[in-house]
Amino acid sequence: MKKKLTTVAFNDTKEKADELNALIARYKNVEGNLMPVLQGAQDIYGYLPLEVQKTIALGLDVSVAEVYGVASFYSQFTFNPKGKVSIAVCLGTACYVKGSGKIHEKCMEITGIGAGDISPDGRFSYDATRCIGACGLAPVMTVNGDVYGRITPADVDGIIAKYL
C-alpha cells in the first residue's frame, strides 16, 4: 500500500541544514549510523522529507532507496510535517481495550483528517500510534507532547480547544 505523502512544501533553514550536516559528519564513519542519523534528522525537522533523506544518503554514501527502506520500516519515522496542533492517540493494546478506538474516531472527526495526515492549512496533524508506554493511564492521547490520560471521547473537544 502506498504511504500517504505530504503535499506541504519543504521549508529548510540554514540553521537546520547546518545542524543536519554536523549530525551526518559526526556519524559518518560509525557502524550502524543510519538509525541515529534518521532519529536526529527527525528531531531537527520534525519529519523526514525526501530532501532530507537525499542529504542523508549522499552524506553516508548509501542509496536514497536504502534510507527510505529503513525509514519506512519503522512507524516512529514520519514523512509528513507536524501541524501547529499535533495530536496522537495511542491504539496500543491497553489503551484500545480501555476504549481509545472511540477517541481515535473523535479526533478524526474534530480535525477532519485521517491518521498520519496533516490538514492542508497546516493547523492539525493527527497520528494513531502504537503503545507509547503509558498503559497505567490508558486510554491516552498526546497533544504537542503533553500527555492526557484516563480520558473519554467527551473530553477531547476541551483538550484540543486549549491549543487553538
Binding site: 525526501l50 548509501v62 536514497v64 532507496a65
Partner: peptide
Amino acid sequence: GAIETINRGFDACIGSAF
C-alpha cells in the same frame, strides 16, 4: 541501489525512495 524493500509487514514491497 535504485530499489529497496520498502514499508513493513504485509505492506512490504520492492520500490524506490518515496
